[in-house]
Design a protein around this nucleic acid. Sequence first.
RNA 1: GCCCCCAUCGUCUAGCGGCCGAGGACGUCGCCCUUUCAAGGCGGAAACACGGGUCCGAAUCCCGUUGGGGGUACCA
Length: 510
Amino acid sequence: MAARGGCRRLPDAGDQPRRGVKATGGSPRVRFAPSPTGYFHVGGARTALYNWLFARRLGGTFVLRIEDTDRERSDDAWISGILSALEWLGISWDEGPYRQSERLPLYEKAAAELFAAGRLYACDCSRADVEARNPGRTTPGYDGYCRDRALTPGPGRALRFRTPDEGVTLVHDVVRGDVEFPNSTIEDFVVVKSSGDPLFVLAVVVDDISMGITHVIRAEEHLPTTPKAVMLWEALGAGPVPVFAHLPVLVNEKRQKLSKRRDRVSVEDYRAMGILPEAMRNYLALLGWSPADGREVLDLEELVSEFRLEDVNNSPAFFDERRLLHFNGLYIRALDEEEFLRRALPFLEPPSGPWAPGRFDRAQFERLAPLVKERVATLGEVAGMVDFLFADPFVVDDHDRATSIGRDPGARALLEQVAEGFRSCGWDAGSIRAVVTAAAEASGRKLAKAQAPVRVATMGRAVGLPLFESLEVLGRERALGRVLSALGAGAGTPAGTGPGGAAQPAGGAG
RNA sequence: GCCCCCAUCGUCUAGCGGCCGAGGACGUCGCCCUUUCAAGGCGGAAACACGGGUCCGAAUCCCGUUGGGGGUACCA
């Protein structure tokens, strides 16, 4: 599951900077660089998707790089989650996954060069030191105390980048335009921790240079650190900086950036609830971008051919689960029967199905599957539509029984007639329908009204799959048993003793 | 506090100076279809944050205000 297609060669740090790739020729190289500090969330998925679409459309290369320079927070367990989520979404990588933790020598070398060139200086100030020196200062950040102390690098000493005091650093961004950062507002930032570990700013730039990255497409939250990256990029003499594209963040209903903490955003969770990867892809693609022609349902090929970085919009987007569900329903209904079965089965068979092992009968399910397909928004809902066939014991919703049978004065007589009909009618949807229709007429009500008590008695709920087709699959024995059981359970109002068999117990199970 | 970004229906968005008395989609409301529920069809309500400019003309350009958001770490 590593790289597929494309070369795996790691361009070494000495490669020529790829000139001209910015706007004109050359094939672009992009990277998706998640940090394994938590489960993979939809924001990351959207970023990965955009990078991938961009690369695919232009025949470029998509590099996967794991940013695990923070040893404290990184955990290998999260990496496999990221990889499997990407695969699930159909986002394949051409190179990688590289791991920054395996590339430490490169960062050390770069830091040494920068130090030798006077761009870095050692610093032994603690955070508290800086704070104590400038109590209540208004401009935050490091105060430059060690700038001219000429400390030698060593244990306990961090390396800081000497930022210019004047001028501005310009960041060219495809979605934001040119953004100016006054250099005076950029502190002498740490590039190597006092532990000797590189900080992500350094690692990112060194890697982007050595991997020949031409376009950096990432979340907007990285925009403020971009001038630092630009400074480093230039200090390392690496040629033209990449083209940047900072995507609008994804927010929750309160308009805050999606957080793994407070919001349900794990890609894995959506997969588990039965969201189709193609629906997730389609929905995600539309969060912050829309095709020129306004179409909304686009398959992979269409996304690839329509996607343009320049068309990405720049305001935060709310991750609307309802809209996702809408797309998912669209995609589920578009599945052919065979495919629907293939996708739904994992949610029904033994480990997953909400019924005892062995209860599930695939053949029975297949008969109703076409009707199910039209009625679910997620694969996770499928089981609930057919549990009247497999759940043991069969349960009837209390509320629905009370309204459709208990409080319906005519229900008892109707059910009795239906039971009578069920004993001898042909057992197919048409015949079953005829029985219920006859009972409906006898009780002077419309079929729609008449089917309610029957539905609750046999399927356990007032809403669900079409009744007659469902009963056909349920079988005469179980259907009749359940109707009788409903009568026996004191359906109707008084004790209108039903003729024959009203005493049959728990007819449901069958 | 400081730096940066953003601002069209509840939501995702189209719009890049006249075609906009603002279009589509989700959601919502009504009707139709109908064995329940969905799906589908039809119809409705629903937005250019505010104030100044520029211009013959502004949702579209500029400035300001307000309001959101992000960053401010020896996290990424």
